[in-house]
Amino acid sequence: MLTMQAVGATMAGAAAQILPVGTAMAVMALASLCISATLAAAIRRPITVPVHVG
């Protein structure tokens, strides 16, 4: 998890270097929402474990 926080901070810094600050903040906020929605969907998905009988 710490590695991904570092990756996110690096991406935010790179976006801020290239884009205007307001745009960089909006881009990172949108990315954060997309990642959160994806992870929430993955967490809600039930885990199925095959059961072998016999």
Rank of each mutant, 00 (worst) to 15 (best):
42 A>I: 12
18 I>F: 09
9 A>V: 01
22 G>R: 07
5 Q>P: 06
24 A>I: 00
37 A>Q: 08
15 A>Y: 02
15 A>G: 03
5 Q>G: 02
47 I>F: 15
46 P>Q: 09
33 L>W: 02
9 A>Y: 01
54 G>F: 07
25 M>L: 04
49 V>L: 15
48 T>W: 08
40 A>D: 15
8 G>Q: 05
39 L>Y: 02
44 R>P: 04
3 T>M: 11
39 L>S: 02
21 V>Q: 06
3 T>V: 07
39 L>D: 03
5 Q>K: 08
27 V>H: 02
47 I>P: 14
14 A>Y: 07
19 L>D: 07
46 P>L: 05
6 A>M: 10
6 A>C: 06
40 A>L: 14
41 A>E: 06
28 M>I: 01
26 A>E: 03
50 P>R: 13
13 G>M: 05
44 R>A: 12
51 V>F: 09
44 R>N: 09
23 T>V: 07
12 A>P: 01
42 A>P: 09
7 V>F: 12
36 S>F: 11
40 A>F: 14
19 L>G: 03
11 M>L: 14
3 T>P: 05
23 T>W: 01
7 V>T: 10
9 A>N: 03
34 C>E: 13
44 R>E: 10
13 G>K: 05
20 P>V: 04
6 A>T: 08
17 Q>K: 14
22 G>N: 05
26 A>K: 05
15 A>H: 00
37 A>I: 03
5 Q>D: 08
51 V>T: 10
51 V>L: 13
33 L>A: 08
33 L>K: 11
50 P>K: 15
51 V>W: 09
31 A>H: 00
1 M>D: 07
22 G>V: 04
23 T>F: 02
12 A>N: 03
8 G>Y: 04
31 A>N: 01
20 P>W: 03
54 G>W: 07
15 A>E: 01
43 I>D: 11
44 R>Q: 05
51 V>D: 08
43 I>V: 15
35 I>M: 03
48 T>A: 12
10 T>P: 04
7 V>R: 11
42 A>N: 13
3 T>F: 13
43 I>K: 14
23 T>Y: 04
19 L>E: 06
15 A>P: 02
21 V>E: 08
52 H>T: 11
6 A>P: 05
10 T>M: 13
9 A>E: 08
1 M>T: 09
3 T>E: 14
14 A>S: 10
13 G>F: 00
17 Q>P: 03
22 G>H: 04
28 M>Y: 00
40 A>H: 10
45 R>S: 09
46 P>D: 05
7 V>Y: 13
18 I>R: 06
42 A>W: 09
14 A>N: 07
2 L>Y: 05
22 G>M: 03
38 T>Q: 13
12 A>K: 05
21 V>G: 02
7 V>A: 14
17 Q>S: 12
33 L>N: 05
51 V>K: 09
23 T>P: 01
25 M>D: 02
32 S>P: 00
45 R>F: 12
53 V>R: 15
53 V>I: 12
39 L>M: 08
7 V>I: 15
44 R>Y: 06
26 A>S: 07
6 A>I: 06
41 A>G: 08
47 I>C: 15
30 L>C: 01
36 S>T: 09
11 M>G: 04
10 T>R: 13
26 A>M: 01
30 L>H: 02
23 T>G: 01
11 M>Q: 10
20 P>R: 07
34 C>K: 13
44 R>K: 10
2 L>G: 07
10 T>I: 10
33 L>G: 04
